[in-house]
C-alpha cells in the first residue's frame, strides 16, 4: 500500500491504530513456545478456508456423502490436497491447542488478570474437540460410522443423562441420515459460530491485557 493511499484510508477508517494495536503491541521477552497460539490460529484459518471449499462438492446424505468425498479426492483437481489439508489440519488443531494450553499452564499465564482469557481458551478447546468429533463422521465410511457409534455410546454411559444425550446426538435411537445431517450442520454452522465468538473474545483479551512474561526462577 502506498503511503499516500494508506494516509487517505487512515484518515477515514483509522486502520493504523488497529494495526498497531494488533501487530505492534509491546510484548515482554518471550521464547518460541509463545508462537503456539498464533500457530493454532493459523491452522484454524486454514481449516476455515479448506472447509468452505469442501462444502462446494460434499453432500451430507448417506447415499451421496461417501461418493462425493471419493469424487473430491479422485476427480476434482486439487481435491486430494484440499481434503488432505483439512484432515491433517484437524489433527494439528488439537495438537497445537493442547500444546498452547500446556505452555499456559507451565508458565502460570492463566493467573490474574488473565483468568477470563483462560476460560475462553477452554471454550475454544471444547469447540475444537467438537469439530473433530463431528467432522470425523462426515466421510461416511466404515471408520467414520463405527467411530461415531462408539463415541456416542461413550456419551451414553453417563449416569441418568447419558441415554437422552445419546439420543439427542444421534437424532434418534440409531445412527442414521438424521445423525449425518445434524453432525454436518453442527460442524459447519454451530461450531464455527461458537469458535468465532470465543476467538474474538480471546484475541481481544490477549491484546487488551498483553501477554505474560516467562516467569523467573524464584517466582
Amino acid at each position: 500500500m502506498s503511503v499516500g493511499f494508506g494516509n487517505w484510508l487512515d484518515e477515514r477508517i483509522g486502520w493504523r491504530k488497529v494495526w498497531d494495536a494488533i501487530f505492534l503491541r509491546k510484548i515482554p521477552k518471550v521464547n518460541w513456545l509463545y508462537t503456539l497460539g498464533s500457530a493454532t490460529l493459523f491452522v484454524a484459518l486454514l481449516q476455515g478456508i479448506t472447509g468452505i471449499l469442501l462444502t462446494i462438492y460434499y453432500v451430507p446424505t448417506p447415499d451421496h456423502a461417501y461418493d462425493s468425498v471419493v469424487f473430491i479426492t479422485t476427480q476434482v483437481p486439487g481435491g486430494w490436497f484440499i481434503r488432505g489439508v483439512h484432515s491433517w489440519g484437524a489433527s494439528a488443531m488439537v495438537l497445537l491447542s493442547v500444546l498452547h494450553m500446556v505452555r499456559v499452564i507451565m508458565y502460570g499465564a492463566y493467573k490474574y488478570p488473565r483468568e477470563v482469557t483462560w476460560f475462553t481458551g477452554v471454550g475454544l478447546l471444547l469447540a475444537t474437540m467438537g469439530f473433530g468429533f463431528t467432522g470425523y463422521l462426515l466421510p461416511w465410511d466404515q471408520k467414520a460410522y463405527w467411530a461415531t457409534i462408539v463415541g456416542t455410546r461413550i456419551a451414553g454411559v453417563a449416569p441418568f443423562i447419558g441415554e437422552p444425550i445419546l439420543r439427542i446426538m444421534r437424532g434418534g435411537e440409531d445412527l442414521s441420515a438424521v445423525t449425518l445431517a445434524r453432525f454436518f450442520g453442527t460442524h459447519v454452522w454451530v461450531l464455527p459460530t461458537i469458535l468465532l465468538l470465543f476467538l474474538g473474545f480471546h484475541m481481544y483479551l490477549v491484546i487488551r491485557l498483553g501477554i505474560s512474561a516467562v516467569p523467573g526462577k524464584e517466582e
Binding site: Q75, V76, P77, G79, F81, I82
Partner: peptide, 13 residues
C-alpha cells in the same frame, strides 16, 4: 500454495 489448488478445485469441473 493454497490459492493455486483452491482455484483449480473450484473451476476444475
Amino acid at each position: 500454495v493454497m490459492a493455486v489448488p483452491a482455484v483449480a478445485y473450484v473451476i476444475g469441473p
